[in-house]
Write a protein that binds this DNA or RNA. Sequence first.
DNA 1: AATTTCATGTAATTCGTTACATGATTCC
DNA 2: GGAATCATGTAACGAATTACATGAAATT
Lengths: 180, 180
Amino acid sequence: MLEIAILGLLNESPMHGYELRKRLSTLLGGLRAISYGSLYPTLRRLSEAGWITEEEPLDPAAAGVARSRRGKRVYRLTAEGKEHLSELLAEVGPDAFEDEGFGARLAFFAQTRADIRLKVLEGRRRRVEEQRDGLRSAMTRTGERLDRYTRQLHEHGLESSDREVRWLTELIEQERTHYS
Amino acid sequence: MLEIAILGLLNESPMHGYELRKRLSTLLGGLRAISYGSLYPTLRRLSEAGWITEEEPLDPAAAGVARSRRGKRVYRLTAEGKEHLSELLAEVGPDAFEDEGFGARLAFFAQTRADIRLKVLEGRRRRVEEQRDGLRSAMTRTGERLDRYTRQLHEHGLESSDREVRWLTELIEQERTHYS
DNA sequence: AATTTCATGTAATTCGTTACATGATTCC
DNA sequence: GGAATCATGTAACGAATTACATGAAATT
């Protein structure tokens, strides 16, 4: 997930890690920033895989003294990285329909093929429908025995999934009329 | 989180692991069951901590032959476990306001002190409000530059958090009028 | 008797966090 | 020149998953 998000952002423009992190936090929910302990090792890994390049911070020019390796490192997506990203975006496995995976996919929908977009939206809808139905049957099954709070929680969950299904249906229709 | 959920369920009635897992999946969302690779080690840990007891499956009675240790194991909450659970439910740290933590707290609200319930609800509301405001300012800040899909995602997120805030406000009011 | 479902468990791995530590730059 | 913020990194750990493996009970 981090991988797809990093590559997706770097596809829009080159950036250094710190900035990447800020963009990452506002990408979806807004809250919960990614930690450095996970960001930098991932950047290193992507770099070793050849999907991004990291620009070494320059030594202070003519000065002969060896300098610290620290400093801003600008990361860029390579051609292989671009290709890898489009493969990742096209992978419509089960995790593409989970909250996080779906959010990440949707955030880069503009860079995703139209047929894949449709598959992602439909898969997500199926998933949310299942959740809604599970909740609904849990409520009718257990019926009266549910305590006040659990019932409230279930009702709110039910309404939320209902709304999301309607939202997705709208998006799917728009996709179909505009890009089919 | 798993710990609080297991103890909470066992506080309602003794159960074996397999059943616990089924109850766990319907507890919140409905979907995404917990895996055995996480369930059984956790049960072992809780047992070693003295919070639950695991009933050894009986050897086939009089038969002298040593039997496999396999078979249904019924888990029960101990007195220490009950106490530990109420401490856990009373811990109103940051993770009590996240999606998962809040869901787990709410699921066992009936077993939670009224003043703690209020704190949890208010903390959750604050959290969701922050998220909503972050989303809102991200939308006005970036304004037109957002692509169609990101905007849709943000709008839906905004409406969802708005609804949740209203829901929480209602719950808080009910708490205040009924239990203050 | 065979198959499915119930039931328990372990080992390796994944994906992330927290806590720690350092250095560079900007602002007052 | 001191403080805050920007910027990068490592080590230890945590909480879960997947894949594997076994066995008991119920169903057909």
